[in-house]
């Protein structure tokens, strides 16, 4: 049985601000994730705004420089790799391309050797629920469908990890539930490890198998919660129990209104 092993040791990130003072964004982040690549998983990083979640995801994607060591399956990450795909919160659609062209775009300009065959694109479009919308332009479809484009684009190249930067934040309740369902389907279908950064407690409980709680100034992971589902689904009683545990965790760190609570 193969595994996806993401190992983060003593990760830190700092920069000099305009006054020449050192500002620490992330400090001493340690994380050891082992996920079976036969099942996939969804993991959330739950933290308030401005805690460095985006920076952390970009570092894992190899887009930003960092101090410490990050490795995927024992291979140190120093530059971007098609094994880890980053999806930003917004604005990642090219307005002059239609849905299909947007999904294909990274492949059309990529110099990577393992390019995707076009018939695979149809399959992915179908699996993310974009069939019939191939010729639409991003401006003509609503934000939930735009997110499906980003997911299709990422899934197409079969990465091991997809990093999603607070992607559900700007969606309405109904669309958010649709995407939550879709993410679960895609996890079992493509056996990918999804790492979601979020500010929303309920969202993280509903979606994730594991939740990492993170402080602000500097960003530091202080607690790991495994979400157990007996029947696969999760009811309001379980949500309340985990919510209480999470809120207690943040309060213990001196953070009383850390994150959004409800969907």
């Amino acid at each position: 049985m193969s595994e996806i092993i993401l190992d983060i040791k003593n990760l830190g990130k700092s920069f000099l601000n305009d006054s020449g003072l050192k500002h620490i964004v992330l400090e001493n982040i340690n994380l050891h994730l082992v996920v079976s690549s036969d099942s996939g998983s969804i993991v959330s990083i739950l933290a308030p705004f401005g805690s460095g979640k985006t920076t952390l995801l970009k570092i894992i994607a190899g887009i930003e420089k960092y101090e410490g060591v990050i490795s995927l399956n024992n291979k140190v990450i120093t530059s971007p790799s098609r094994k880890i795909i980053y999806i930003p919160e917004k604005h990642n659609f090219l307005p002059w391309l239609n849905v299909r062209q947007n999904i294909e775009f990274p492949e059309t300009i990529s110099e990577a050797k393992d390019k995707i065959l076009s018939q695979k694109i149809d399959e992915v479009i179908h699996n993310v629920g974009l069939s019939g919308y191939e010729d639409f332009y991003p401006s003509d479809i609503y934000s939930g469908f735009q997110l499906r484009i980003a997911l299709a684009r990422a899934i197409l190249i079969k990465p091991k990890i997809i990093l999603m930067d607070d992607i559900l934040r700007n969606l309405d309740g109904e669309t958010r539930q649709e995407i939550v369902k879709l993410l679960k389907e895609l996890t079992s279908q493509y056996k990918i490890l999804f790492i979601l950064s979020t500010t929303n407690i309920t969202e993280s409980i509903q979606l994730s198998n594991r939740i990492y709680l993170m402080t602000k100034n500097p960003g530091r992971i202080f607690k790991e919660i495994n979400v157990f589902r007996d029947t696969g689904s999760i009811n309001s009683e379980i949500i309340t129990r985990y919510k209480d545990e999470i809120e207690m965790g943040f309060k213990a760190q001196g953070m009383f209104q850390p994150v959004l609570v409800s969907l």
């Binding site: 971007p80 790799s81 110099e111 990577a112 190249i157």
Partner: peptide, 17 residues
């Protein structure tokens, strides 16, 4: 907007491209 291009490096697409 930086968001328009920030995701592309993870597809191993170079800065010039």
């Amino acid at each position: 907007p930086k968001e328009l291009t920030s995701w592309l490096p993870s597809f191993e697409i170079s800065s010039n491209q």
